[in-house]
Structures are given as structure tokens and as C-alpha cells.
């Protein structure tokens, strides 16, 4: 248990606590005789700020760890960030292109990120994965397929 992880947790909890405390001032006051909507948000925010102070206070007492950045690995973090970016992009793609096309693109990218390099194999897997998800969820389970806002393939195919 390193000083770093305590510090960062403390700072993070403190910032979130302060934001929450500020946001909870906007909640209307309760009518007399009720606990009201405000009590819990304020109590929880205050408790979080208290915990954050305690965390920082304790971090001071902890010995600095030998590997000062052991709570945040280095090169692998980049890959995680890439994957996260892909995730957010994927959501945008579904919105714009509908599920099938977006998944074709995103699955190619995710297989690529996980180290598949041969193009034929990559494409084949992406097509298979997309087909499998589409058939299982949208055809089989009848989930509503959102029409893409930029390009709606199904509307075009039916014409």
C-alpha cells in the first residue's frame, strides 16, 4: 500500500466530495416534517470530504514506496487509454452509422488492439463477430436497432 495511491485517492475523493457538496446546495429545501431530498446528498458529500482528509493525513505517515509509481504502470496505460478511446468512438459510431456498420469497424479495431495483425484473418473475425452479434441480439432477441443518424443502411436496403 503506497503513499501514492493514498494521496491520489484522497485528492480524487476530496474533489468529488466538494463538487457534490456544491451541487447539493441547489436541491430545494424539505417541506417541514420531512427528511427531504437534500439531507442524504449533503451528508454523503461531507463524509467523503472527511474521508479524503483522513486519507491524505494517513498518506503523510506512510513510508514512500520503493517504486514511487507502482500504482500507475507506464507503457500499458497507453493501450488502456487507446481501448477506452475506441469505446467512446464506438458509441458515436453506433449513433451515426447504426449498429452493424459501427460494430464492423469497432471489432476490427479491437482485434487489432489485442494483437491480431493478419488482415484477412482480422477482417474475417470482424465480419463473423458482427454477424453473430447482429443475428443474436437484433434478429433473435428483437432488440431495437437504432437507425444511424448519418447513414441508415436498413432504410436504404429496403428501397
Amino acid at each position: 500500500m503506497s503513499r501514492g495511491s493514498y494521496c491520489w485517492t484522497g485528492i480524487l475523493a476530496g474533489v468529488i466530495g466538494l463538487i457534490a457538496l456544491w451541487a447539493s446546495t441547489g436541491i430545494p429545501d424539505p417541506v417541514a416534517g420531512e427528511i427531504g431530498a437534500k439531507l442524504f446528498p449533503q451528508a454523503v458529500s461531507a463524509a467523503l470530504i472527511l474521508i479524503s482528509t483522513l486519507l491524505l493525513w494517513n498518506a503523510r505517515r506512510l513510508p514512500a514506496s520503493d517504486a514511487p509509481r507502482d500504482w500507475m504502470p507506464q507503457s500499458s496505460t497507453l493501450h488502456v487509454l487507446l481501448l477506452a478511446t475506441l469505446g467512446l468512438t464506438y458509441v458515436g459510431l453506433i449513433e451515426a452509422l447504426g449498429y452493424a456498420l459501427a460494430t464492423l469497424i469497432a471489432s476490427t479495431a479491437v482485434f487489432l488492439l489485442f494483437g491480431h495483425r493478419r488482415p484477412q484473418r482480422l477482417l474475417l473475425m470482424a465480419v463473423l463477430a458482427t454477424a453473430a452479434y447482429y443475428l443474436c441480439f437484433f434478429v433473435g432477441l428483437g432488440v431495437y436497432d437504432p437507425p444511424g443518424s448519418v447513414l441508415d443502411i436498413r432504410a436504404l436496403l429496403s428501397n
Binding site: A106, V110, F111, F114, M125
Partner: peptide, 13 residues
């Protein structure tokens, strides 16, 4: 390297 990409895609759907 197959199962985690699949889990990733499953999470979204």
C-alpha cells in the same frame, strides 16, 4: 486475445 475482444464487444451490445 479472442475472448477479451469478444467480451469488450458484448459489453457494448
Amino acid at each position: 486475445n479472442i475472448i477479451y475482444p469478444m467480451i469488450f464487444l458484448t459489453a457494448f451490445v
